[in-house]
């Protein structure tokens, strides 16, 4: 009897690709291409004196030395601190007030309409939003604000930093408003009702129940907005362009102007690099203060 041939399955060498890798690959590719490569390029660029000619001349730390001796830098840093602090106060403070007002104090549908109106500037293209402000602030008698107060004030020249703070604050507050109102809605009504039964006033409910329960959203909005204010400049560019004479120039805009208006790409990259380092440090400090680790523990299964 012919022995029955036993087909032995050749043992395949298993290529063990963890199942999540194929899912991650496209994103890893995109992140590498659009985030990692530009970061590396920027780091390299900051060591060159590249200008309009676009030559990769490596000059060591020259750009960084120049950063610390640039006479405009102290002014720009001070502007940045004032701008970020004041705008953040408006963004978080006004956002909180709007969030509480539109969810706790007024009926649901009125609150919805109110929030939709506040969201309009966020849905408007920045150029249109900035243009509207320029019309409001026009220095002639045709400016809306000047018409209202009955005299000609050149707002963007006399109060450039104030103007950019308000312009950014108004558009930024809607972000906090949305996050806070969603968080307030998720507070169980029982707490509020129980407090009302105990005779708590509205103010006491806000102070003792709502705000303490908004701790994590507050942390999130504050750190998120700090970072985005440090690095964004489009409204300032459109409304005052940093002027007059650097009075409303902030750090990120100075990097932009240096690189793209003055065509000093190397120095511009170095200014941006220092900003990145500062932003990282600020974020770490904030996460430490707010106890970010505890938040993650709670979410993870605590």
């Amino acid at each position: 009897m012919k022995p029955k041939r036993v087909w032995r399955r050749k043992r395949a060498i298993p290529i063990r690709i963890p199942p999540h890798i194929p899912f991650l690959l496209p994103f890893a590719f995109l992140v590498t291409l659009f985030f990692f490569v530009p970061v590396v390029l920027n780091i390299l660029l900051a060591f060159t004196d590249m200008d309009f000619a676009m030559h990769w001349n490596f000059v060591g730390l020259k750009n960084y030395f120049r950063f610390f001796t640039d006479r405009i830098i102290p002014k720009v840093l001070l502007n940045t601190v004032i701008y970020v602090t004041a705008t953040l106060a408006i963004n978080v403070g006004l956002g909180l007030v709007l969030g509480i007002l539109s969810t706790y104090y007024v009926p649901e549908n009125v609150g919805l309409l109110f929030r939709a109106i506040w969201l309009l500037p966020r849905m408007t293209p920045p150029v249109v939003y900035a243009l509207l402000w320029l019309w409001v602030l026009d220095p002639t008698e045709y400016g809306l604000l000047n018409m209202l107060i009955g005299q000609n004030v050149n707002w963007t020249m006399q109060h450039p930093l104030g103007v950019v703070i308000i312009v950014n604050g108004m558009v930024g507050a809607s972000f906090g408003m949305i996050i806070f109102s969603a968080a307030i809605k998720s507070i169980p009504r029982d707490y509020i009702m129980a407090a009302q039964v105990d005779g708590a006033s509205n103010w006491q409910i806000v102070r003792r129940i709502i705000i303490p329960l908004l701790r994590w959203p507050l942390m999130f909005v504050t750190s998120w907005q700090t970072l985005s204010l440090l690095t964004s400049y489009e409204y300032i560019l459109l409304v005052t362009d940093g002027g007059p004479f650097y009075k409303s120039e902030v750090w990120s805009l100075y990097a932009y102007h240096t690189a793209f208006s003055h065509q000093l790409y190397g120095y511009g990259a170095a200014i941006a690099m220092v900003l990145v380092i500062v932003a990282i440090v600020v974020t770490m400090i904030m996460l430490k203060i707010f106890g970010f680790r505890r938040l993650m523990e709670l979410a993870g299964g605590g």
């Binding site: 002027g243 007059p244 004479f245 650097y246 009075k247 208006s261 003055h262 000093l264």
Partner: peptide, 17 residues
Amino acid sequence: VYHRAVYDAIQAVETGA
């Protein structure tokens, strides 16, 4: 570079900066 810097200086003087 020169061109822009002179302009900036004049703007600084005119605006009182």
